[in-house]
Structures are given as C-alpha cells and as structure tokens.
Amino acid sequence: MGTLSYTTAVSLDGYIADANGDFQWAAPSAEIFRVHVDRMNAVSAEILGRRTYELMRYWESEPDDESWTADEREFAQRWSALDRIVASSTMASDDVGSPSVRLVPVLTLSAIEDVVRAAPGEVEIFGPTTASAAIRAGLVTDIRFFVVPVVIGGGLRALPDDARLNLRLQETRPFANGTVYLHYRTEATGRP
C-alpha cells in the first residue's frame, strides 16, 4: 500500500501561480531540479488534472535538438515510467499520449484511495485544484513545499482556504537561491 503526497513550489504568501496564472517565478534552479529527480525514486504514480497533465506532457518526448541536460533526461525517463491518472471530463482517450496514462472523467475520494491502496510506493497528487478534496479529507500524508522567496499578492492558492491540518515538520533544506524546502507529515485532526 502506498501513501499520498502533495508537492509544489509556493510563494512566501502561499500561492503557486499569480493572478494571471504565471508561475515562472517558481522555475527550479539546477540544484532544486536535481532534488526533484531524486524525489521521483519514491514515487510510483501521479494523479493530475487536465491542465497539469498538458503541462507535464513536455517530459514525454525529448526535443530533437538535444538541449536537455542529463538531469532533465533522467527526470523525463522517471516521469514516463510512472503510472499517471489524469482527471478530466473534457479529454478523450485519444488525447493521452502514453499507455501508462489512465484517464478518469471524475476523480472521487474513493478512486484516490483505490490508487493509493494499489500503489507499491508514494502516489503524488499534483496541482492544488486536483489535490484540494484529498487535502480537505485528510488523505494526504506528506506535504512538500519548495517555498520561493517572492510575494505575489494573490492568485492560485497552494492549499484550499478551508483546509484544517495538523502538521509535523519532517525536513527542511535551504537552497542557494533562497528557496527553502519544507516537508511536513500530516497528523490526525480528529475528524471522522
């Protein structure tokens, strides 16, 4: 049985994208990107929404100009090997580019629990909109934030406004560019 985690870059004021949807301020340095590559060792499946899946399709085929670094190639190989569950009511099965991608029209909490139960390792739920119901329900056991030293003043929040979580710090790590990695484990909140 696996565990469910949520990992994202986040501004100091708690957003993953600004009011215009821009998240370029969160682009990882080479040092941070290497952490993401290493982190993929524990991940066996990804749950994502349509927009995040479309963004991450970039990693499904290497550019012809060989412009990727060794770390980017390694990340792409690890990403492509993962089971990916894409939640979208607007995509058709023809829209997914890999046999390791499963399309589900509605992502229920029981479907998330089934994926986690069947996983041999960590299941990462990717994107705050896709993750919000699982966070609220207490299904997410690990939250990993790469806190970027920028305040953007509004946009897409990293956590749902009505989430109530008790967290226990597991790890911190500062990076040369001022970003700080925070890994928290959730504790029971007393909710049924």
Score class of each variant (00 low, 15 high):
4 L>C: 02
6 Y>N: 05
10 V>F: 03
10 V>H: 06
11 S>E: 04
12 L>M: 14
15 Y>E: 04
16 I>N: 08
17 A>P: 01
17 A>H: 04
18 D>H: 02
20 N>V: 07
20 N>M: 04
20 N>K: 15
21 G>F: 13
24 Q>A: 11
27 A>N: 14
27 A>H: 14
29 S>V: 01
29 S>A: 03
30 A>H: 03
30 A>F: 04
36 H>M: 12
38 D>M: 01
41 N>E: 12
41 N>L: 03
44 S>E: 08
45 A>N: 07
46 E>D: 09
47 I>P: 00
47 I>Q: 07
49 G>V: 11
52 T>F: 13
52 T>M: 14
53 Y>I: 05
55 L>N: 06
59 W>G: 13
61 S>A: 10
63 P>C: 10
71 D>W: 06
71 D>L: 06
75 F>I: 02
76 A>I: 01
79 W>L: 10
80 S>N: 13
83 D>V: 12
85 I>Q: 02
88 S>V: 12
91 M>A: 08
92 A>R: 02
92 A>L: 05
93 S>W: 10
96 V>K: 06
99 P>S: 07
100 S>E: 09
103 L>E: 10
103 L>T: 12
104 V>I: 15
107 L>Q: 03
107 L>A: 06
108 T>M: 04
116 V>I: 14
117 R>G: 15
118 A>F: 04
120 P>Y: 08
121 G>F: 13
125 I>L: 15
128 P>L: 02
130 T>R: 07
133 A>P: 07
135 I>K: 05
138 G>I: 13
138 G>N: 09
138 G>A: 11
140 V>F: 01
141 T>Q: 06
143 I>A: 12
144 R>C: 13
148 V>M: 10
149 P>Y: 02
149 P>F: 01
152 I>W: 14
160 P>F: 05
161 D>S: 09
162 D>V: 04
165 L>N: 02
166 N>F: 06
169 L>G: 00
170 Q>M: 09
171 E>G: 11
173 R>Q: 12
178 G>A: 07
179 T>H: 02
179 T>A: 03
180 V>L: 04
181 Y>S: 14
181 Y>P: 06
182 L>A: 03
183 H>P: 11
185 R>A: 09
185 R>E: 12
187 E>A: 14
187 E>I: 13
189 T>G: 11
190 G>D: 10
190 G>W: 06
